[in-house]
Every structure is written in structure tokens, then in C-alpha cells.
Simulated assay, not measured.
Amino acid sequence: MSEVSSSLQAFECLRAQINPYAEEVWLIALNSQMEAIKIEMVFRGTADHCLVHPRDIFRILILCNASSFIMAHNHPSDQVLPSEQDLILTRKIHQASVLLQIPLNDHIVMTKTQYYSMADHGHFKKWKKNKDLYLY
């Protein structure tokens, strides 16, 4: 299992999976040592839209006993900045992650050549290997 403890490592982990024609949402489920225990595409949409439901995200994370996770999705338009809908979704998933105590480490928006990390831009606490406290 490979460690995924930075946004760059997450991007590199998913880079080859990027679909140039349709938005997709991916999860990287992590164990307590920040090692990937599952990488899975959970939703596929159209060229500019993808429906996402938190229940499906957390079902996967609970079934693989994830300690934390990274969510990522691509923008086929090659616009790397998150949309308002991306930010709303991130807040919803983050709130659910707090309730279920499965920390969302990052939400990454990807294009073929670049990425935008919400954690690196202050939307989340910085990456930590051993999260003793879970306060947001």
C-alpha cells in the first residue's frame, strides 16, 4: 500500500484515471497510516455535471474501514478552479465526515495537467498522519 499524505501524492495517484470526456468522482480511502486501502470511482456524470450522494461515499468508506479519505473529481473543461457547486458539495461531505468521524483530508479538482487542492487552499486542516483530535 502506498502512502498518500499530500495533495500532490493524491493527484499523482489518480492522474492516470482522469476521464477527458465526463466528470467523475473518485475516493481514496486511507488507513490510520495514510496508506491507500481503496481507490474507487464512485460517480460518473456528463461533460460538465456529476450527481453525488453522500450516502454512497460513506457506505464505501465504512465497508473498507477507512480512517480518513480524499475525494477528487475532474473537470473535462480544463478549468481547475472549483465551482460554487463543488464548494457546496465539499461542505456537505465535510459535515458528514465530522459526524461519522471519518475525516475528509482533501477534495481535489483535477484536469489533465493540474489540480486544485482545497486543503492546500485553507478549506481543511493540514494533512496529519496521526489525528488524535478531530476538531473543525
Rank of each mutant, 00 (worst) to 15 (best):
R59I: 03
S117P: 03
N65V: 04
D56R: 02
S68W: 08
E35A: 10
D86R: 00
P103F: 13
I108L: 14
E3C: 06
A96P: 00
L27S: 06
E12F: 13
Q17S: 14
I60R: 12
D132Q: 10
G45C: 08
I70E: 09
M41P: 02
L81A: 07
K112R: 15
F69R: 08
L51H: 11
I39E: 08
F124Y: 14
I28F: 05
L30T: 04
D78V: 03
I37P: 08
L63F: 01
Q33N: 14
H123D: 02
S77W: 06
N74A: 07
A66T: 08
V25P: 07
L61C: 09
M34G: 00
Y115G: 11
Y134H: 05
P54L: 00
A22F: 10
Y116L: 10
I108W: 08
A36W: 03
N74H: 10
Q33Y: 10
L133R: 12
C50D: 07
V80H: 01
A72W: 09
V42D: 02
I102V: 15
N74L: 12
H75L: 03
A66G: 12
M1F: 11
Y134S: 01
I93C: 11
P103H: 07
S77R: 14
R59M: 09
F124S: 02
V98H: 01
I88P: 00
F58E: 11
R91E: 15
N31P: 03
I18Q: 13
E24W: 07
A66W: 06
I88L: 05
Q33P: 02
L27N: 04
R59V: 02
L63E: 15
E40R: 15
L14R: 00
D120K: 06
I57E: 04
S5E: 01
R44M: 13
L81Y: 06
S32T: 11
Y134M: 05
L81N: 01
N130F: 13
N130M: 08
F43Y: 06
A29K: 04
D56P: 05
R44S: 14
A66C: 04
N74S: 12
L51Q: 14
T111F: 03
I102N: 06
T111D: 09
W127L: 01
N31M: 03
C64A: 06
H107M: 10
A29S: 13
M118K: 09
N130D: 10
I28H: 07
S32Y: 13
L14I: 13
Q101S: 09
D132N: 03
N130K: 12
M71E: 13
Q114F: 00
K126Y: 01
C13A: 11
Y21D: 13
F69P: 01
L63C: 05
H75M: 04
Q79I: 12
D120N: 15
G45E: 08
S6Q: 13
F43R: 05
E35Y: 06
S77D: 14
D106V: 07
I88A: 10
R59T: 05
L61I: 08
I18D: 09
D78W: 03
L14W: 08
I57P: 02
P54D: 02
S77K: 15
C13M: 15
F11L: 12
A119D: 00
E12C: 14
I62N: 09
S2M: 14
A119E: 10
T113E: 15
R59P: 00
L133V: 04
F58W: 06
H53K: 09
D56C: 05
I37M: 10
P54K: 00
A47N: 08
H107Y: 15
T111M: 05
V80F: 03
I57F: 07
F43I: 04
